[in-house]
């Protein structure tokens, strides 16, 4: 019996040890969440580390007490440990173990609320750039209002500048996740939600749809490349000159379920992002309408596109797998 307890103890330590090793050792880039490449991911990691430390305050004593008690009070002839079958009440002990968890939750709760509010928008002194993201079955479209270019299944962003990703979906909802830059947010049809991320250093970052969207879900990978502002602008200029335009036909083609490779476009139909949001239900959502109003003047492309005021006219454009009612 004793040997088995030791095995069990060893296993527990091995498990804890493995977690601790991963958490503390340098963490290669493979451990994406633990190796953030930007301030959002870094703040999230700080909270993760704080929560692990606080939790260990409970876990370690629980396992230590368990091992001690099970060993000391085992039912064996000649065991001299005290036996007190009615010891079942101690106000002092109860106060301790109601009190400590309350304290831990208070600390972690405060930290959580602070981080939650901090991460809602980028620090006010920085001017963010906007990238509009649409998830399709099973691909990602990135539109860059500044340069009016578009990419499929990869994105370029400048280093050191907050990027407001405005997210929507023209398919069942997905979730936009670039682990090394920071946590995910859902892309939902008829809604446009923002997630700001920022790269602190140049690099190529793995991204993937995180919410299941059917057969092709496993192939919804994209890569985000962060490069200096100069190179980013050069890239935009290069794309504007060299790539083909994204036509309405191409755009409709994207909404047909398929898995495709990378694509690059020098321009896209004005208002296509907004039209998608409104057509997919945004017209019924007060928040989406506000968002569209806020988004458009901010992105500097002037007046609202005509399609936005008459969303119903665009529904005739719908093809592919969606049902017409």
């Amino acid at each position: 019996m004793k040997g088995k307890q030791q095995t069990r103890r060893l296993l527990t330590y091995a498990g804890l040890g493995a977690v601790a090793t991963v958490m503390l050792s340098g963490c290669g880039a493979q451990y994406q969440v633990l190796d953030p490449a930007g301030p959002v991911g870094q703040q999230e990691l700080n909270l993760i580390v704080a929560s692990v430390v606080l939790m260990l305050i409970v876990i370690i004593p629980v396992i230590a007490i368990l091992v001690y008690v099970v060993y000391r009070y085992r039912d064996k002839p000649g065991n001299t440990a005290p036996y007190d079958p009615h010891f079942s009440d101690s106000k002092v002990l109860e106060v301790i173990w109601w009190g400590i968890p309350i304290l831990i939750v208070a600390i972690l709760g405060t930290e959580t609320v602070r981080t939650t509010f901090q991460l809602t928008k980028p620090p006010s002194n920085a001017t963010p750039i906007t990238v509009e993201v649409t998830s399709f079955d099973w691909k990602w479209l990135f539109q860059y209002p500044d340069g009016h270019v578009a990419t499929v299944n990869y994105a370029y962003i400048p280093v050191g500048v907050p990027v407001n990703f405005v997210l929507t979906s023209d398919a069942p909802m997905n979730s936009f996740w670039v682990p090394r830059l920071g946590g995910q947010e859902y892309t939902m049809p008829g809604m446009a939600m923002t997630l700001w991320l920022q790269a602190a250093q140049p690099g190529v970052y793995y991204g993937h749809g995180a919410n299941f969207t059917g057969r092709g879900f496993s192939h919804t990978t994209f890569y985000v490349t962060a490069l200096s502002m100069d190179k980013y602008q050069q890239w935009i200029a290069h794309v504007q000159q060299s790539a083909p335009a994204l036509t309405q036909t191409d755009y409709r083609q994207l909404s047909v379920p398929s898995v495709i490779g990378n694509e690059t476009f020098s321009s896209y139909p004005t208002g296509s992002f907004e039209n998608t949001v409104l057509r997919d239900g945004g017209q019924y959502m007060a928040e989406s309408m506000q968002m569209m109003n806020k988004l458009h003047p901010g992105t500097g492309s002037g007046s609202m596109p005509s399609g936005m005021t008459m969303p119903t006219t665009t529904t005739t454009n719908k093809t592919g797998h969606k049902k017409h009612k």
């Binding site: 703040q43 993760i48 930290e111 939650t116 979730s175 946590g183 995910q184």
Partner: peptide, 9 residues
């Protein structure tokens, strides 16, 4: 811890 959940979800 909600912001951390953005990475676990």
């Amino acid at each position: 811890a909600a912001p951390a959940d953005y990475q676990y979800h």
